[in-house]
Amino acid sequence: MAMVNHKTVIKLENVWKIYKMGEVEVVALCGLSLEIKESEFIVIMGPSGSGKSTAVNMVGCLDIPTKGRILLEGQDISHMEESELAQIRGRKIGFIFQTFNLIPSLTALQNVMLPMVFQDIEKSEREKIASNLLRRVELGDRMRHRPNELSGGQQQRVAIARSLSNNPDIILADEPTGNLDTKTGKVVMDFLHSLQEKEKKTVIVVTHDPTLAKYADKVAYLHDGKIIKLTKR
C-alpha cells in the first residue's frame, strides 16, 4: 500500500507512564515514540505486561502520560481535562475490547445507540444509524437481544458496530480476538481490515497472535515499555 501523502494522525513522543503503588513505582512505558498515519493498520505485539494496553489506552484518551506528548491530529492531549478527553473519545475514537464490554442491561440496538446518546444525536437518527450498523455486521435479526443472549462472536460484532456509531477516524482494538475461536477471530479481523480499506479508518490492534501481523501495514513490537522493533510491509 502506498504511504505517500498520508498525514500523521497519532504521534507519541517520548511517552512515559509510571504507576505509583504506594512506595513502589511501576514503569509501564518508558520513552515510547510512535507515529501513526491516517488510514494505517497497526498491529502492536509484545509479551504480557510490556505496556501494550497502557499505550493504546493513552492513544484512546482514556489516560494521560506521566511524561512526554501525545498528539492526536496535531492536538496535544497529554494535559487535557477529563471532559475534553471524553469529548474526543466520543467523537474520534471507537473502542473494541477483548471482553466485548457490552452493557448487559441494554439490547444490542441500545448498546450501539449509547455512544450517540452521549453526543446528543436525535433518537430517530440514532436508531437509523445503529440498525444500519448492526445489519452491516450481519446482526439485523438480533437487534432486540441482550448480550447474554448472544454468542461471543456476535457480541464482538455488536461491539464493533458500537465502536463505529459516531463514525470515528480511529479504531482501537485491544485483543479483539482474544476471547474468540480462530474462525470467528478471522471474521472480526477481516471486518476491521475492510474498515481500513474501504473507509480509510486508522485501525490499531493489540494482539498476542503473530498470524494477525499479516493484516498490518506496520507491526510494533513492545518490550518493557519500549518499542524494540517496528516492521513495515
Partner: peptide
C-alpha cells in the same frame, strides 16, 4: 464500575 468505565470510553462525560 466496569460499565462506568465502558461508558466513559465510548464518550460519557463525568456529568453524564
Amino acid at each position: 464500575t466496569k460499565e462506568i468505565g465502558v461508558m466513559k470510553a465510548i464518550g460519557a462525560k463525568n456529568i453524564d
